[in-house]
């Protein structure tokens, strides 16, 4: 095929309908408080990992809900599970459990259990 020195760019759009939201659904079912997240950013402001890396739990949460799983899977490792996010959350989201459940869901997804 011809090479013109430029390419067709993949859209940045979140294509909600074709994204896989099984990981999010898995968490919603087991940790309903996750639905309450309004992405205020209190968690990421205080996050141990977020102070030294690009990790943002706020961004993580929203992209997890949208089914942007490859991003989520990659970011997941950065959390140090310190629990400060849960402490500061004004909506009472058990953020630490969200991380653990995401971890679990990805393992099960690989084993086709989700």
């Amino acid at each position: 095929m011809a090479d013109f020195g430029f390419t067709i760019i993949k859209p940045r759009v979140i294509d909600y309908d074709s994204n896989d939201r099984r990981i999010a659904e898995y968490i919603f079912e087991r940790e309903p408080s996750f639905r309450l997240c309004i992405e205020c950013g209190a968690c990421s402001a205080t996050c141990s990992a977020g102070n030294f890396t690009r990790f943002s739990l706020r961004e993580f949460n929203i992209l997890l809900k949208r089914g942007e799983n490859s991003y989520v899977k990659n970011e997941l490792k950065k959390c140090m599970l310190c629990g400060k996010c849960t402490l500061v959350c004004p909506r009472g989201v058990n953020t630490r459990n969200v991380i653990s459940l995401a971890q679990e869901a990805f393992i099960k997804l690989n084993g086709h259990e989700v």
């Binding site: 013109f4 020195g5 430029f6 390419t7 067709i8 760019i9």
Partner: peptide
């Protein structure tokens, strides 16, 4: 700019 043309092309493609 040739290197930027993919940006133009992608809109049309969409």
């Amino acid at each position: 700019v040739q290197a930027n043309r993919g940006y133009s092309l992608s809109n049309t493609y969409k």
